[in-house]
Design a binder for these strands. Structure first.
Ligand SMILES: [Mn+2]
Ligand SMILES: [Mn+2]
Ligand SMILES: [Zn+2]
Ligand SMILES: [Zn+2]
Lengths: 157, 157
DNA sequence: GATATATTGATAACCATTATCATTTGACGG
DNA sequence: CCGTCAAATGATAATGGTTATCAATATATC
């Protein structure tokens, strides 16, 4: 038996993972639980590498490959959502009990603001209909300069 | 002197490139012109690698590094636009005298349909305003199944 | 044409990610 | 509990797309 969560509210995510593993001949393991816990503790968009750095601080014995594998597993299980950033790196964010949203990204400081705009979603549905496509998902990123960076007039790096 | 275009209408793109090079201590070269011509002859979204394959058929002496370098140059000069695909590869498309548009992507066959939706653009502008961001650009991809693939009920690969 | 400098192509290096594989671990039945 | 066995692990090598290095070459200007 492995369980024994620290964050009370993370129990349900863990059960989602366990349910996903069940019947698939996959096993619940200590490294997987640690990766899940660390991931749930991060309220941001992280790459697998960044997640690995955070995981190491909790359990240095966990290998990089396991973190990469597990975060993919979390995505399959519906606990994480990933997207390929414009620089080519893949980032992950929480997906369980998180509503769909898109992102405003500051090109100067990298800040990310999440937003939902019903009108955009509606217009997208219309585009799908017009072209006879069946929707499976979309990615929208609005690039720009955030209020703080506009004030500074900065041009990072 | 290098010039001597085959496609009559490509002359203006070439002059855009030459103008960009001028005053920047950059030089117009035969490989650059070849890469530009081949690129202009492809009405699709291509990776640098795919462009390299096409360039080789015209001039096998041109190296891969030069194609990668040149296509980046074309982007800087405003002749190409690039985007990172979800699989991590970067693809390029024509940007000169091409209006902004977004993409519908078939997840089964990879087909790409370009579209412009004024309503989406308007709603995006509203999001920028609401959050005090200064817009610099955006990327929107609608993933789905195209009409042909829906009929086949296919699930590629 | 000679000169100075940018460009080239072959190659090595890079980075994020994935595959390989011997060893360890967890789930299950006894 | 313990044994069994497939699944998981971590170290490492390999991959794919891209960029850096560098000696040789081509270009613009004089
Ligand atoms: Mn988000
Ligand atoms: Mn396009
Ligand atoms: Zn900012
Ligand atoms: Zn299709």
């Amino acid at each position: 038996m492995i369980f024994n969560m620290k964050r009370a509210d993370a129990a349900t995510e863990l059960s989602v993972l366990v349910d996903y593993l069940q019947g698939r001949d996959l096993k619940m393991t200590r490294p997987r639980q640690t990766v899940l816990e660390v991931f749930l503790g991060i309220e941001a968009h992280v790459t697998a590498e960044e997640l690995y750095d955070a995981v190491r601080k909790v359990d240095p014995s966990i290998g990089q490959a396991t973190v990469f594998r597990t975060v993919r597993l979390l995505e399959e299980a519906g606990l994480a959502r990933s997207a390929c950033r414009d620089d080519g790196a893949r980032s992950y964010e929480h997906a369980y009990r998180h509503k769909h949203h898109d992102h405003l990204v500051c090109v100067d400081c990298g800040a990310i603001v999440e937003f939902r705009e019903a009108e955009i979603e509606r217009a997208q549905a219309a585009v799908y209909r017009k072209h006879g496509f069946e929707a499976t998902g979309h990615s929208l990123e609005l690039f720009g300069r955030c209020p703080a960076c506009r004030r500074k007039g900065g041009t990072r790096a």
